[in-house]
Simulated scan of single mutants.
Amino acid sequence: MYNGIGLTTPRGSGTNGYVQRNWASVRKTKDSVNYRTEEEIAKLDSASNKQPNREILDHERKRKIEVKCAELEDSLEEQGLPREEIAARVAAFRAKLSESSSGDKDVPKDEFGRVA
């Protein structure tokens, strides 16, 4: 017996007890599909366009500053400058970058709204 269908035991029935689906039964009606109207689509599109998270944008800006500072530090180390002077130059460069980027209210973005 399979899901309450079929024989409890195939013994003595002249069959092996395998339960098959009846492919001959056809549905009379097809499930109706509710299509969305143009107004509903516009409403869903406007709801899905969110503004980017300010914390994520700030983190991305700080990460880019640190990458530039690391590149400067590497280039100064290759020039053979002392450690103290490298630290001072990198700190001044970091201050200059953070000062200039904090003044920018308009963050450059690509066509998908991500920080470029």
Rank of each mutant, 00 (worst) to 15 (best):
V107Y: 12
N3R: 08
K64V: 12
K68V: 02
E73I: 00
N34R: 12
L97K: 02
A116T: 14
L44D: 02
D58G: 14
R61V: 03
T8M: 09
A70I: 00
G17Q: 00
R83K: 15
Q51K: 15
E99Y: 09
N49M: 10
S32L: 14
A116S: 14
K96W: 12
S98R: 11
Q20Y: 15
L44I: 01
P10C: 01
R83Y: 12
R54G: 08
T29C: 08
S102C: 05
N53A: 08
G103M: 15
E39L: 13
L81R: 01
G80C: 04
A24L: 13
P82E: 04
G4T: 00
R94K: 03
I65L: 08
G12S: 01
A70C: 02
E99C: 05
F93M: 05
N22F: 08
R36F: 13
K43I: 04
G113S: 03
V26Y: 09
K43T: 04
S25G: 09
V33C: 09
V26P: 06
A116K: 15
F93T: 02
R89T: 02
T37G: 07
T15N: 01
R11C: 00
G4A: 02
I41Y: 10
E66T: 04
A87W: 07
F93W: 05
S98E: 12
E39Y: 11
K64R: 15
L57N: 06
L81Y: 04
V19N: 08
L97Q: 04
S100P: 07
H59G: 11
A88L: 13
T29H: 14
E55S: 09
G17N: 00
L7V: 03
T37Q: 05
L76K: 03
R114L: 11
K96R: 15
K30V: 05
I41A: 07
N34L: 11
M1N: 07
K96H: 11
D104I: 14
T37D: 05
Q51V: 14
P108Q: 06
N53W: 07
S75H: 05
V19C: 06
A47G: 02
D74N: 10
S98A: 09
K105V: 03
S75G: 03
I41F: 12
P10K: 01
T37K: 04
E78T: 13
S75C: 04
I65W: 10
G6A: 02
P10F: 01
V115K: 13
R114P: 04
K30A: 15
W23D: 08
T9A: 05
F93R: 00
A91G: 02
F112N: 10
Y35L: 12
H59I: 06
E38L: 15
E66S: 14
D31N: 14
S25R: 14
L76A: 00
I5A: 10
P52N: 02
A92V: 01
S48V: 08
E84S: 12
W23N: 10
G80A: 03
I5M: 10
E40Q: 11
E111V: 04
G103F: 10
R36D: 12
E99A: 11
A47K: 02
F93Y: 11
Q79S: 07
E55P: 03
I86S: 02
E111W: 05
G4P: 03
D110A: 03
Q79W: 11
L44H: 00
A47P: 02
D58C: 12
L81W: 04
L72Y: 01
A42F: 13
K43N: 09
E71Y: 06
F112R: 06
V19D: 03
E78D: 14
E99M: 12
Y2E: 15
